[in-house]
Design a protein around this nucleic acid. Structure first.
Length: 608
RNA sequence: GGCUCCGUAGCUCAAUUGGAUAGAGCAACGCUCUUCUAAAGCGUAGGUUACUGGUUCGAACCCAGUCGGAGUCACCA
């Protein structure tokens, strides 16, 4: 428990004072869980004290071990061992036995507790022109886990997403559907509605490419190619890089799409109606996917509502000389002092950019939620943007400036390389979910059960655990084959540990026996030690916004339990006291697994 | 090219934030089910932590350089 750690710390401090007449603080002391291959529960590393005390580590360890043995409360220390300056402290069986009772009497022992703050977590934030994909899944799982663990730590957390429902992308889907759709609907052709909209986006790109390829044969095109600046570019390379320019200048389809966007901005009723229809399809589809993933939101922001926000802040900042205006009328902020550059906030024509909108949205959220902290779960390609945004809000002096955090995550890649929508190598979220559920169902049928609810839990656990176990800052390789693996370091492995516990508990029924006098063995002490570290693990995960720490913790616990299960019999224990103790222990382990996995959005089945 | 991040077993990932002999899973090869669920357990094999130097009692982790990869450097989002 954290109490015993603090106790060892205090005794060490007073010990140093008594023995060496020197004052040290808790920061000078390093206590870690003892490595498995050594005897002990906690280790005091004495090297850090050696310099301060002008003594050899060995010497310090010897003296302190005596002092700790005699002064640690209620003689909890059963033995100490010194190995090359590492002072290993073994706590007594009775200490661990009462630690178990403490866990039983305090159902919150596993959570850290903090003074509550209002925190807002933004995640998912999709575009509305195509379905969710694998990258969104990583985002969503990170966001959800952040929400859960912040909440478990006592905070008041709200979940939001900003839906990018406007702009040229959705206009492409709208245009393709109205040109070629012939009145088709998701219902009429039996397709999931967000996929339906995505199909029209793909159709647009296809038609556009056709048009572009044809244009490349024209004289205009040939002339442009011959007069290109970068002579070293091949024809293919040149036209690849020229595509965007073509879209904005020569393309007929591009012109139509841009006209549609203008009509939308002018509130043209027909366009708005079409836009609403297509977005409604997308939202219905997203809703299904979110439901499968088990996530929900407290509030949705729509870019169509927020894209004009932030202008007043820019005006205000200009007045207060935090921002400045250029000769052409555009407004900028100078972030060179923070090691960044100059950033545009408002175009010369008075229209806003992404930055303007983010400025306004943060302000709005602060007003609506009173959030002291705001967490943005967004991919690491936007690291610079958020650095600039936060620096800017800091320069502006907003009251929420210090609580802003970008939970940045690396791209998800396939074994063959990056996912590219153009090359059709994007892993669709719904497809992926279907594949893991199929895999779980196949495995279940071999084991002769077919409870769909259990299969769902197993499949989703496999997928979720596979993704959240990886440190979010790193790019990860997603191997679809490995993700549906149900053996080894996986979600189902952890579920199986839980299920084995439930099976024993069911058989044990209402057995009520006392374990007075029972002394836990080495395996049981290790399990209790792991459980006692749970709240600190979660605390680290919260501090670092890193759910992977929890995934690793629970996996280690499940692994240890599987071994214990193999070696030690609970229901056929050598004594009633042993059985009573073990029943209590495994119940706590089961609850711990369930609680910690719930923080990652992973559910436990009762049987599998 | 500037800035930022990354490089650990064949593959996918860890390593308690500078601590002990760098650990797991997958893949490979052995062994263990009339036993509380074998989606499990045990064992074998696999490493110059990209490379070179430095800092110190101690470096995968900090510093410098080199090599390799990614992101970003829009009046896009």
């Amino acid at each position: 428990m954290t109490d015993i750690l603090k106790e060892i710390e205090n005794v060490t401090i007073t010990g140093v004072k008594v023995i060496y007449q020197k004052d040290i603080t808790a920061e000078d002391i390093l206590i870690t869980p003892t490595k498995k291959e050594h005897q002990g529960d906690y280790t005091l590393v004495t090297f850090s004290l050696a310099k301060k005390l002008q003594q050899s580590p060995q010497n310090i360890a010897v003296k302190l071990s005596e002092y700790i043995k005699q002064n640690l409360l209620s003689s909890s220390v059963s033995a100490t061992e010194i190995v090359q300056g590492f002072l290993n402290i073994s706590l007594s069986p009775s200490f661990w036995s009462s630690a178990l009772d403490e866990m039983v009497s305090d159902p919150d022992y596993w959570k850290p507790s903090h003074t509550p703050e209002k925190i807002l977590v933004e995640f998912s934030s999709p575009n509305t022109n195509k379905p969710l994909h694998l990258g969104h899944i990583r985002n969503i799982l990170l966001g959800w886990a952040s929400y859960k663990m912040l909440k478990a730590s006592g905070h008041d957390v709200s979940r939001v997403q900003i839906v990018n429902d406007r702009g040229i992308a959705i206009c492409k889907s709208m245009l393709a559907w109205s040109k070629f759709g012939e009145g088709q609907t998701p219902e009429s052709i039996g397709m999931k509605s967000d996929h339906f909209v995505g199909e029209w986006y793909v159709r647009f790109e296809k038609e556009f490419l056709k048009e572009y390829t044809a244009w490349q044969q024209t004289d205009t095109s040939k002339e442009i190619f011959d007069n290109r600046n970068e002579k070293e570019l091949s024809e293919a390379e040149f036209f690849k890089s020229y595509k965007n320019h073509y879209f904005n200048t020569y393309s007929k389809l591009g012109l139509e799409a841009r006209e549609m966007l203008l009509k939308w901005e002018a509130h043209d009723p027909v366009t708005i109606q079409l836009w609403k229809k297509m977005n409604a399809w997308v939202y219905a589809g997203f809703g299904e996917t979110y439901k499968k993933l088990g996530v929900e939101f407290d509030k949705l922001y729509y870019e169509s509502d927020t894209y004009l926000l932030g202008k007043d802040i820019v005006e205000e900042g200009l007045k207060r000389k935090v921002f400045y205006q250029k000769g052409d009328g555009s407004i900028w902020v100078d972030l060179t002092q923070q090691g960044l550059d100059h950033k545009l906030l408002l175009r010369a024509d008075g229209t806003s950019v992404y930055m303007t909108q983010d400025l306004g949205t943060a302000q709005k959220r602060f007003e609506e939620f009173g959030a002291e902290r705001m967490v943005y779960v967004v991919g690491d390609e936007q690291n610079y943007h958020f650095q600039a945004l936060f620096a800017m809000i800091g320069a502006y002096g907003a009251p929420y400036a210090k609580g802003l955090h970008h939970l940045s995550y690396g791209m998800v890649e396939l074994p063959e390389g990056k996912m590219k929508s153009r090359e059709g190598t994007v892993v669709d979220a719904d497809d992926l979910i279907a594949v893991v559920l199929k895999e779980a169902a196949d495995a279940a049928s071999e084991r002769e059960f077919n409870d769909p609810e259990v299969i769902r839990k197993i499949g989703m656990a496999a997928l979720k655990f596979f993704i959240v176990k990886v440190d979010h800052r790193k790019r990860m390789v997603f191997d679809p084959k490995a993700s549906v693996d149900l053996q080894g370091q996986t979600g189902p492995y952890i579920q199986n540990a839980y299920v084995r516990i439930q099976s024993i508990l069911r058989k044990a029924g209402e057995i009520q026996k006392e374990h007075t006098g029972y002394e836990p063995n080495a395996d049981e002490k290790l399990l209790l030690n792991m459980l006692s570290q749970c709240s600190q693990v979660i605390d680290s995960a919260v501090r670092e916004y890193n759910p992977a720490l929890i995934a690793n913790y629970t996996y280690a616990l499940a692994k240890e339990y599987h071994r214990y299960y193999h070696d030690v019999k609970v229901l056929h224990a050598e004594s009633d006291a042993a059985m009573a103790f073990r029943l209590k222990l495994i119940r706590i382990i089961g609850e711990n697994i369930q609680n910690t996995m719930d923080l990652l959005g992973i559910e436990m089945p009762e049987r599998m």
